[in-house]
């Protein structure tokens, strides 16, 4: 029998993998993908709670999260393209122009 706890633990594992990915990767695009993974992990929690509490609010929130993620992907990738044009790299260790 699959309970809500199973879904929440899976969501927590995927979120944790997203956080670790953000911390260990140096490629800006892969870091961006890990952020998308974290958003997806939270969406699983939303839908699991909606199913558990017989509510539609969770599904509505997932809908809006996806919209925000789409907007974020468009702007973020545009920023990465602009940075690559100036510095010829997407390695975040080489992007230190705003550091002291």
């Amino acid at each position: 029998m699959i309970t809500i706890t199973h879904y929440l633990v899976l969501s927590a594992i995927l979120f944790m993998l997203g956080v670790v990915g953000v911390l260990i990767r140096r490629n800006a695009i892969v870091i961006f993908m890990c952020i998308e993974l974290m958003l997806n992990a939270v969406n699983i929690s939303f839908v699991a709670f909606a199913y558990h509490l017989h509510s539609m609010q969770g599904q509505m929130f997932v809908f809006f999260t996806m919209t925000v993620a789409a907007a974020e992907a468009a702007v973020g990738l545009a920023i990465i393209v602009a940075v690559f044009r100036n510095k010829e790299t997407v390695n975040i260790d080489d992007m230190n122009i705003m550091k002291w």
């Binding site: 919209t67 789409a70 907007a71 468009a74 702007v75 990738l77 545009a78 920023i79 393209v81």
Partner: peptide, 13 residues
């Protein structure tokens, strides 16, 4: 939000 994001992406790129 989507409108602003589209404009922002075009401006940045």
């Amino acid at each position: 939000l989507l409108f602003v994001a589209a404009i922002g992406a075009i401006m940045l790129a």
